[in-house]
Design a protein around this nucleic acid. Structure first.
Length: 568
RNA sequence: GCGCCCGUAGCUCAGUUGGAUAGAGCAACGGACUUCUAAUCCGUAGGUCCCGUGUUCGAGUCACGGCGGGCGCGCCA
């Protein structure tokens, strides 16, 4: 069976074919640069390409002359109604009914798979994100990590990658020992035993709650007889359960959890250290063992073994990535906080010293999140312990709104999370607007079924009935989902999707409202059941695209919205 | 001081290998409704794209130099 190509793929293919005829000398990789893009104004057609300007210099031709030839040849394609040349050499294309029909055909044919692509075919990716320390509750920053990582996984999968998501548990070293000590003191306190709780390092209430639960039914001797590792393990497990539960509330589930402690126990850390020593890039200085990292962009070499004989965190982290690479994925993606900006060079250096292809590793740095309430930024500091908890954000705003806002900005931008807006059930709130558009389509479809009006099948006759500019505009927008998905996967950028979906919702709302002033624009036209069928097909296509897009963001596409008064 | 990121409408931000008259949402202002869900739509206004120089047919986008802000620069993790 012929694979179903998206409109853009078909058009780009045609463009390259024509270019190949016009300029047989062009290399394959040059040809691949020739693409169509959306136009900013209807005067410039439905799609346009700058291919003529791109190649005219190399071919020693005038861009406009080349454009003329391109336009003439493209005009013969079945998806092209007419062409024009404009400006310095843009080729503008007005699409034929067959092209518009092709879009609706793709959507109805591919259904919930519409938008998926082949960019990542044959690629397997290990995607690590969140990896919050099991020493306490997650904060609002982890919200963004969870939302972005999960959406990235969904998007990469849609683009054809085989993705495994992983959470790394930092459950070894000094901080877990400190956690154990804090927990031990809380337990003694909870059991009424003398405990110096004023110096406690992890002072949050959650440890008190864990302790109260843990000491239940245990004797004082039992507690006093427990060693620090026992307390540490208990607190670690309880924190990890809390983290899992929080992630579950956001609908985020990991394929795999890897414990640092297990890497120590299996000997992987020791082995990594040995390999680094043997790599010829480790050296002794000032009683410590150092790794050369400056040739990977670091501003100074880093210590592997401190002069007191203890390894730094770098050793197990390199061991962890050694383990990742040994599992044989074709690429590795880490989502780190921007406060770890100095970290990639040393990690890459370590991985490269072990003989791995470090180019397979991509590290994304996510910027900070600020919580906005009542128009003001909520101040918080981890040290003071008054941070904004992930669980509170999700509970207050809901998972859908939380995800939407966390995904709606480029990862390189700081993000203001406006809680008041996120909670609002009005069109000011983009996630509600998009979900409402979906629900409203479902409502129209329900109403249609009552009148025995159903979406038509995508045929030429049906296409001919969808002649309104608003309808054509919507179909062009529907055609863009595959490109949006591909681009998001290519750039590892999830923020294109919400912008696109918001645009679709706006188009729909506008279209739907036309009926208010013009009854001819109603979808459920009982006086013209053929037209009603055509419009229902368009509505259903839009619903499908909204649903698919929301799905990639991990956000629900509700079939019904409850009015607030019905909510209670 | 060095490295990374950001600087675009009143606000929050998009802006595909450099492309046509720089966009969206929200806010503001002026209109529309007894609807297939007003949780809406239409219209108006709003910009030295931080500054400068350069590259070229063309720069918000690239290069160099500044300015402003964030983060990082530990034998902490």
């Amino acid at each position: 069976m012929e694979p179903l190509l998206s409109l853009r793929e078909e058009l780009d293919l045609a463009l390259r074919e024509v270019l190949g005829e016009l300029a047989p000398g062009l290399a394959e990789e040059d040809l691949s640069r020739a693409v169509f893009g959306p136009t900013k104004s209807p005067e410039h057609g439905d799609v346009a390409t700058n291919a003529a300007m791109l190649f005219s210099k190399a071919l020693g031709r005038k861009p406009r002359d080349m454009g003329e030839e391109l336009a003439a040849k493209l005009a013969e394609h079945r998806f092209v109604k007419s062409t024009g040349i404009a400006g310095p050499g843009f080729v503008n294309v007005w699409l034929s009914d067959a092209a518009f029909l092709h879009v609706l055909h793709c959507v109805s044919e591919q259904g919930e798979n519409y938008g998926e692509g082949t960019l990542g075919e044959g690629e397997s990716a290990l995607l690590e994100f969140v990896s919050a320390n099991p020493t306490g509750p997650m904060h609002i920053g982890h919200c963004r990590h969870a939302a972005v990582g999960d959406a990235l996984a969904r998007t990469l999968r849609a683009a054809g990658h085989d993705v495994t998501t992983e959470f790394y548990i930092n459950d070894a070293g000094a901080q877990v020992a400190a956690l154990g000590e804090s927990f031990r003191q809380r337990c003694l306190e909870a059991a009424g035993l003398p405990a110096p709780t004023e110096d406690i390092q992890y002072a949050g209430d959650y440890l008190k709650e864990f302790a109260a639960d843990f000491v239940e039914g245990k004797s004082g001797d039992e507690l006093l007889g427990m060693d620090l590792d026992g307390f540490a393990a208990e607190a670690r497990n309880r924190n990890l359960e809390m983290i899992r539960a929080d992630l579950e509330h956001m609908g985020v589930f990991f394929d795999s959890f890897v414990s640092e402690q297990s890497l120590h126990e299996s000997g992987a850390v020791a082995e990594t250290l040995q390999k680094l020593r043997e790599s010829g890039h480790a050296y002794e200085k000032d009683g410590a063992l150092w790794l050369q990292t400056t040739d990977f962009g670091d501003d100074q070499d880093r210590v592997l073994i401190k002069s007191d004989g203890a390894p730094t965190y770098l050793v197990p982290d390199v061991a962890y990535h050694h383990d990742k690479f040994n599992r044989g994925f074709s690429r590795y993606i880490n989502v780190f906080g921007a406060d770890h900006g100095g970290y990639p060079p040393r990690l890459r250096a370590g991985i490269a010293r072990l003989g791995h292809d470090v180019e397979k590793l991509t590290i994304l740095l996510l910027r900070l999140v600020f919580l906005l309430k009542g128009g003001n930024r909520v101040k918080f500091s981890k040290r003071a312990g008054n941070f904004v908890a992930l669980a509170d954000v999700v509970e207050e705003a809901g998972s859908d709104a939380t995800r939407w806002f966390m995904l709606s900005r480029s990862i390189d931008s700081e993000l203001e999370f406006d809680m008041d807006l996120a909670r609002e059930a009005t069109s000011r709130n983009p996630v509600y607007k998009v979900q409402y558009a979906h629900a409203r389509i479902c409502s129209v479809e329900r109403k249609g079924r009552e009148q025995a009006l159903r979406p038509a099948r995508a045929t030429e006759d049906v296409m001919a009935r969808l002649s309104e500019p608003a309808e054509r505009e919507m179909i062009l927008a529907l055609a863009q989902l595959p490109e949006i998905v591909e681009r998001s996967a290519r750039e590892l950028a999830v923020h294109h999707l919400p912008a696109y979906l918001l645009h679709l919702a706006d188009l729909w709302n506008r279209y739907w409202s036309h009926a208010r002033t013009n009854p001819d624009m109603r979808i459920l036209r009982e006086d013209d059941r053929e037209l009603a069928g055509a419009r229902l097909l368009l509505a259903e296509s839009l619903r499908q695209v909204l649903s698919n897009g929301l799905g990639m963001m991990g956000i629900a596409a509700p079939r019904k919205m409850l009015r607030e008064e019905e909510d209670a």
